[in-house]
Amino acid sequence: MSDKLRIGITIGDYNGIGPELILKTLSNKLVLNYCTPVVYGNTYVFKHYAQLLNINPITFNIVKKKEDVKDGAVNLRFCNEDRINITPGEPSIEAGKFAFDALELAVEDVKEGIIQNILTAPIDKKSTTDAGLPFNGHTQYFAQKFESNVQMILVDDDLRVAMVTGHTPLNSVSSALTSEKITESIKSMYTHLQSDFGIKKPKIAVLGLNPHGGDNGLMGSEEINLIKPVIEALNKNDVIAVGPYSPDGFFGSNNVKNFDGVIGMYHDQVLTPFKQTSFANGINYTAGLPIVRTSPDHGTAYDIAGKGIASISSFVGALYLINKIHRNRLKFYDSSTTPLPYKDHRREKFSIGVPDLN
């Protein structure tokens, strides 16, 4: 095997923009200087979209076993040979099953050594759940498959955000918060910032739960009784955490630029400001896995599926981030490993990210 990473790319929902993202990204041959892609889908879907979007079709190298994978080529693993009906912009259980099959084969191939890391195109959660995926999304799926405690981190260059309660209904957030959960979330992010992002002494901002950070107990006591004691205890153990901050003032004042990571108490508290500034470039990273798994931080975009106008910025960024994290992990866990210079990868990212696709 060459030094290039073998990155599995799952097709996601074929009625969404996943096939378009893959076709546009892998039509730039510079990508092959950076990694060896192994796509999980079938030729029928990609031929259909290449014709529909007037994009040059990709010549795939078909992979049936590990030895078939070729560097310098776009490889394809058939994840499903069922007769399918492609209806851009319309969810279907059929498309959900196809996306699920792609995930299952990619995970199997990681364990067999065919690929090393995974980039997932967007899925429709309801379609995949109806088709048999026993989890509400990629994050929980990978956590179960690799028996790992994971943390979802949203990334856009130096902006990194995570949350304590994840996909918890808003009316259950307060009761779901515990000192242990807050502590674990902050400690996990601290560790991932070190091992995966190469930051020796991360500085993490911690947000409060209530309006105006509780205003000294007038609008809620979680900041006083839960969050602040956790921060103080962590500081005594050399974890640099600061807060709790009132979320509106924190993001509005650009204080976020003074930190390496941000921990919020619930999903929309950090995702809303993140997507406001990083919707086109945001990346979803599942930290805590033995592999590197990333995804663009957007959904299936049914409203523009099949129209040829989807931006590949987030998808390309997710592809690049895999290499960056892989390199940082090697450096963190093996001091004898010398990573490639960061500046070279910045140039490579720029080259990959702005191909002439017109």
Score class of each variant (00 low, 15 high):
330 L>G: 12
30 L>D: 10
307 K>Q: 14
261 G>A: 11
160 R>P: 10
102 A>S: 15
274 F>S: 01
19 P>N: 06
192 H>W: 13
158 D>I: 12
216 N>Y: 14
91 P>S: 10
86 I>S: 07
164 V>Y: 04
88 P>V: 06
195 S>D: 15
255 N>C: 07
174 S>L: 13
28 N>Y: 11
350 F>W: 15
82 D>R: 15
316 V>I: 11
128 T>K: 03
155 V>F: 06
332 F>P: 03
261 G>K: 04
11 I>W: 04
140 Q>T: 07
231 I>E: 02
50 A>N: 08
225 N>P: 05
23 L>M: 15
40 Y>P: 08
184 E>F: 09
269 Q>L: 09
136 N>Q: 12
148 S>P: 07
260 D>Y: 15
54 N>S: 09
28 N>K: 08
144 Q>M: 06
220 G>M: 02
203 K>T: 08
115 I>H: 06
305 A>H: 09
145 K>G: 01
188 S>I: 05
180 E>H: 14
111 K>N: 11
253 S>L: 12
351 S>H: 14
105 L>C: 12
252 G>W: 15
325 I>D: 04
75 N>T: 03
254 N>F: 13
244 P>F: 10
340 L>V: 10
344 D>H: 11
172 S>D: 14
157 D>I: 01
90 E>C: 08
28 N>Q: 02
229 P>D: 05
348 E>L: 14
13 D>E: 14
52 L>E: 05
323 N>W: 07
6 R>M: 02
319 L>P: 05
216 N>C: 13
239 V>Q: 02
22 I>Y: 11
302 Y>I: 08
94 E>W: 11
303 D>C: 09
250 F>S: 00
7 I>C: 07
142 F>E: 02
157 D>R: 10
324 K>H: 11
62 I>P: 07
162 A>L: 13
45 V>G: 02
